Amino acid sequence: MFILPNNVTIIEVGPRDGLQNDKKQVDTQHKLTFIRALQGAGITEMELTSFVSPKWVPQMADAKEIIAKTQHIGRQFVLAPNAKGAELALEAGVRSIAVFVGVSNSFNEKNINRTTAKSMEALQAVIATLKAAGVFVRACISTAFYCPYEGKINPEETLALCHWFAAFGVDELSVADTIGMANPQESYDLFKTLKEELPNVLLTAHFHDTRKMAMANIFAALQAGIDRFDTSAGGLGGCPFAPGATGNVATEDVVHMLDTLGIQTGVDVKKVCEAVQVIAPYVSRSIDTGMYRLFLNGQ
Results as ranks from 00 to 15, higher is better:
residue 120 M to I: 15
residue 91 E to A: 15
residue 120 M to H: 06
residue 31 K to L: 09
residue 163 H to G: 09
residue 6 N to Y: 10
residue 72 H to I: 13
residue 133 A to L: 01
residue 264 Q to P: 08
residue 34 F to P: 00
residue 267 V to E: 01
residue 249 V to W: 03
residue 23 K to E: 03
residue 194 L to N: 03
residue 107 F to E: 03
residue 151 G to P: 06
residue 256 H to C: 10
residue 158 T to M: 08
residue 70 T to D: 09
residue 93 G to T: 05
residue 24 K to I: 12
residue 126 V to E: 04
residue 294 L to R: 07
residue 60 M to P: 08
residue 237 G to M: 03
residue 296 L to F: 08
residue 15 P to F: 00
residue 290 G to Q: 14
residue 201 V to C: 08
residue 122 A to L: 15
residue 245 A to P: 14
residue 74 G to Q: 02
residue 170 V to W: 13
residue 245 A to V: 14
residue 37 A to Y: 02
residue 240 P to V: 05
residue 69 K to V: 04
residue 169 G to Y: 05
residue 35 I to P: 02
residue 246 T to S: 11
residue 123 L to A: 12
residue 220 A to T: 10
residue 10 I to G: 00
residue 203 L to R: 00
residue 26 V to P: 07
residue 236 L to P: 02
residue 283 V to A: 14
residue 142 S to E: 06
residue 103 V to R: 08
residue 246 T to M: 08
residue 205 A to Q: 00
residue 282 Y to L: 11
residue 78 V to R: 07
residue 294 L to C: 12
residue 28 T to F: 05
residue 126 V to I: 07
residue 125 A to G: 13
residue 93 G to K: 04
residue 10 I to T: 00
residue 32 L to Y: 01
residue 70 T to I: 10
residue 167 A to K: 09
residue 95 R to Q: 06
residue 155 P to W: 10
residue 204 T to D: 00
residue 173 L to W: 07
residue 21 N to D: 01
residue 211 R to I: 11
residue 213 M to K: 09
residue 48 L to Q: 14
residue 76 Q to W: 00
residue 32 L to F: 00
residue 274 E to N: 11
residue 297 N to S: 09
residue 271 K to Y: 03
residue 212 K to I: 15
residue 294 L to S: 09
residue 134 G to N: 11
residue 223 Q to H: 06
residue 182 A to T: 14
residue 172 E to A: 15
residue 94 V to K: 01
residue 38 L to R: 00
residue 225 G to W: 11
residue 65 E to Y: 12
residue 213 M to E: 09
residue 238 G to Y: 03
residue 58 P to H: 02
residue 90 L to G: 07
residue 276 V to R: 01
residue 170 V to I: 15
residue 280 A to F: 15
residue 215 M to Q: 04
residue 293 R to S: 12
residue 63 A to Q: 14
residue 2 F to W: 11
residue 268 D to C: 08
residue 188 Y to N: 08
residue 259 D to V: 12
residue 234 G to P: 03
residue 141 I to M: 08
residue 9 T to H: 08
residue 126 V to W: 04
residue 284 S to L: 12
residue 103 V to Q: 12
residue 261 L to S: 07
residue 78 V to E: 15
residue 251 T to V: 01
residue 209 D to F: 02
residue 137 V to T: 04
residue 182 A to M: 07
residue 119 S to G: 15
residue 293 R to Y: 07
residue 154 N to G: 15
residue 258 L to Q: 04
residue 295 F to E: 04
residue 268 D to M: 07
residue 158 T to P: 07
residue 189 D to C: 15
residue 13 V to C: 00
residue 130 L to K: 07
residue 228 R to N: 11
residue 212 K to H: 13
residue 204 T to Y: 00
residue 63 A to E: 13
residue 83 A to H: 10
residue 130 L to C: 08
residue 150 E to V: 12
residue 134 G to C: 12
residue 102 G to Y: 04
residue 249 V to L: 07
residue 62 D to C: 15
residue 248 N to Q: 03
residue 31 K to D: 13
residue 220 A to G: 07
residue 263 I to T: 13
residue 183 N to I: 14
residue 97 I to S: 06
residue 259 D to L: 14
residue 264 Q to A: 13
residue 35 I to S: 03
residue 223 Q to V: 09
residue 58 P to Y: 03
residue 210 T to V: 08
residue 227 D to A: 14
residue 169 G to T: 06
residue 70 T to Q: 09
residue 153 I to T: 13
residue 67 I to L: 11
residue 114 R to T: 15
residue 253 D to R: 02
residue 15 P to K: 01
residue 150 E to N: 12
